[in-house]
Nucleic acid binder design. Structure first.
Length: 642
RNA sequence: GCCGCCGUAGCUCAGUGGUAGAGCGCGUCAUUGGUAAUGACGAGGUCGGGAGUUCAAUCCUCCCCGGCGGCACCA
């Protein structure tokens, strides 16, 4: 006899050997029909496996989020069966459920092609229709290893070998096919359903290590219901629509070319946007007590040796030399060592601290070719960088102020939501534990003071100090790591930064490395995708397009555009010999926030007709002076608004 | 860097072992029109680069460069 406790606290006794299915059947016929697995003491468990003893049970139906994970995992098994059936000789490895679906890593000498997907999907559907029950078996460890070796599944054998000696080796069968798996699984393949789709093919290393054999990974998406699959495919389309590389081309913001891989050619409108962002951030930083500096691009190798970069970061550095002087120089990959040089000029007093040095620092890093990705990952970029030199006692106040500044800036760019990660001391580190204690506590205190909650990332700090990372969420829910603040006990030591304390003795300052946007290039990429190119007025590269209806209004239109520009607005005039419909369409597609239409009537009355992006027919007609005043006020960056 | 896919006009893309085509854009001309495409005509490409196979290569093979999707990387 076993006693089962349900989520609502009710208890019920069942005969030994009763399965989840039996329990469900005892509750109701419809539940028995819908049940696909159970949770046994909080862990997912096969529906048709005998419940081992007294337990808390929850019956999972398809609609349950945890059921979805099982469905996805099973879908991976169905994929593996289909692939091995169609492509004999392919070895299986692992195939877990992931966000939105699953993947499966195969080993096969010949490459798969996405052209194979249709055939594989058809086979998968046939396996689902065949309704093979998933049957669990327990095998002897040695026998299992020998068996998988014998049938040529070297990876599976290796997995079992690496399992702890006492672990249960469970095998699941689905019709003629079987696989090593901890489970649990659905009652049968029919329950996987047909809401799946193979998406892409990618290389992946066995166990994620690039020294291991390369496997072929097939990604699929899978949902409980077809409607969810359709919705997901739509979301992918939406992300593609917003792709900054596509929008960048359409809106002529920037381009890349192969002679400068990973470096941006900013076009006039893109650079306008860039400068708008930079100038805004600059004003916010000045207001927050930062002093802006500019430091050299090329520094002697000796300098990077002293900073430690030559040793630890050289692979990512562009190196240059000059024959005449027999010198090796490196292009700076980071600004921090240069900032220490500025700090080190002249004797600093504790009265000078905290000293906040900021720089829109241009950095170059050699990023591997495979990691380059539009504006999101480039080799030349500018950071909204700053280093705060302070005492240990000032860390909390500085980090708190930083969090406030960051929150303000994100909010102004339209990012209301972000999360914070707190990473503390790693195993490999410099600095005494007492300093780490102090810095970690200071960061925690700052988070509390700023009213923020952080996820805890134990041991993930830099070797030189603990840090906070800031991850913002965009308009369609994607996350981007942008901001960071890191304590550094190492660099001030290496580059001998010091200040004179109240006691008249030399002390080491703590250095806080911090960025809010991170790389401006990448941040612009994020902004473009967040707004899908339809920027708010203050950011839009072209804020107002003055479009004429007839050439009789040309002179007036030029005057309007000039007046708008004089008022600080980014305005252009479209005097082309085209119909107004054509112009409205074109500038609407270009996502220009305001179209000022002028015809004969406006010219005579010295008015403009304003049409806002995203509106259909509601236009407002205003006098030129009123329109300028209105738009000038509306287009002010958030920090300059009254 | 690794695996797979891709590279044809400014853009989006079609196409063929006998050196190329559409739409949009661009230019010229006509048209001066009220809020999402006026019409006609025209120009524009050594088909990413190099080598090879072939009588002949944009097409087939190899190498290189770049892009895309992942993996690895992101002190």
């Amino acid at each position: 006899m076993i006693t089962v406790t349900f989520p609502d606290g009710a208890r019920r006794d069942f005969a030994d050997g009763t399965t989840g299915a039996g329990v469900a059947a005892a509750i109701s016929k419809s539940l028995a029909k819908k049940a696909i697995a159970i949770k046994l003491d909080g862990k997912p468990f096969d529906l048709n496996r005998p419940i081992p003893g007294d337990a808390e049970i929850e019956i999972l139906t398809r609609a349950h989020p945890e059921a979805l994970e099982i469905i996805r995992h099973d879908c991976a098994h169905v994929l593996a069966q289909a692939v091995q059936d169609l492509f004999p000789g392919t070895q299986v490895t692992i195939g877990p459920a992931i966000d939105n679906g699953f993947f499966y890593d195969f080993y096969r000498t010949e490459p798969f092609s996405t052209d194979d997907f249709a055939q594989i999907e058809a086979k998968m559907a046939a396996i689902v229709d065949a309704d093979y029950p998933f049957q669990r078996e327990e095998w002897d460890r040695r026998a299992a290893i020998a068996h998988f070796r014998a049938i040529g599944e070297a990876f599976k054998a290796e997995i079992i070998e690496d399992l702890p000696e006492d672990s249960v080796i469970s095998i699941y069968r689905q019709g003629p096919w079987y696989d090593l798996c901890v489970g649990p699984h659905l009652p049968s393949t029919r329950h996987v359903g047909k809401a799946f789709k193979l998406m892409k093919l990618a290389g992946a290393y066995w166990r994620g290590d690039h020294r291991n054999p390369q496997l072929q990974r097939m990604y699929g998406v899978c949902f409980a219901e077809e409607a969810e699959l359709a919705a997901h495919l739509k979301q992918i389309e939406e992300a593609e629509r917003r792709d900054h590389r596509k929008i960048g081309k359409q809106m002529r913001l920037f381009h890349f070319q192969e002679e400068a891989a990973g470096q941006v050619f900013w076009h006039p409108h893109g650079w306008e946007l860039y400068r708008t962002v930079e100038n805004y951030v600059r004003r916010r930083m000045v207001a927050a007590g930062y002093q802006e500096i500019k430091t050299p691009q090329l520094m002697d190798r000796k300098f990077w040796e002293a900073s430690g970069h030559w040793d630890k970061y050289r692979e990512n550095m562009f190196i240059s030399s000059i024959e005449e002087e027999d010198k090796t120089l490196a292009v700076k990959p980071m600004n921090c060592p240069c900032h220490v040089q500025v700090f080190n000029q002249g004797l600093k007093s504790y009265r000078d601290l905290p000293l906040r040095l900021s720089e829109f620092g241009s950095c170059h890093r050699y990023e591997s070719s495979g990691s380059l990705h539009g504006l999101m990952r480039v080799r030349a970029f500018v950071q909204d960088d700053a280093h705060i030199f302070c005492t240990e006692d000032q860390i909390t106040a500085e980090v708190t102020a930083f969090c406030d500044l960051l929150r303000q800036i994100y909010a102004d760019f339209g990012f209301a939501e972000f999360r914070v990660k707190f990473s503390d001391r790693p195993d490999q580190r410099v600095g005494e534990d007492a300093i780490w204690d102090k810095a970690e506590n200071a960061l925690r205190a700052a988070l509390t003071a700023a009213g923020l909650e952080a996820e805890y990332n134990p041991g993930d700090g830099a070797f030189y100090g603990p840090k906070l990372d800031f991850i913002l969420k965009d308009a369609i829910g994607r996350e981007w790591q942008t901001g960071t603040i890191q304590c550094d006990f190492n660099l001030p030591e290496r580059l001998d930064a010091n200040y004179i304390g109240e006691d008249g003795a030399k002390h080491r300052p703590v250095m806080l490395h911090r960025a809010i946007c991170g790389s401006l290039e990448r941040f612009l990429g994020i902004l473009i995708e967040n707004y899908a190119g339809a920027f708010p007025l203050w950011l839009a590269p072209v804020q107002i397009m003055v479009a004429t209806i007839t050439s009789e209004a040309d002179d007036y239109a030029a005057e309007v555009a000039a007046a708008l520009r004089k008022a600080g607005l980014r305005a252009e005039a479209d005097l082309r010999n085209e119909k107004i419909n054509y112009k409205v369409r074109e500038h609407s597609l270009a996502k220009i926030p305001v179209i000022a239409v002028v015809g004969k009537k406006e010219a005579e009355e010295r008015k403009v007709s304003l049409r806002r992006f995203g509106t259909q027919e509601t236009q407002s007609v205003a006098t030129l002076a009123d329109a300028i005043a209105l738009l000038a006020a509306e287009s002010l960056p958030p920090d300059l608004r009254a």
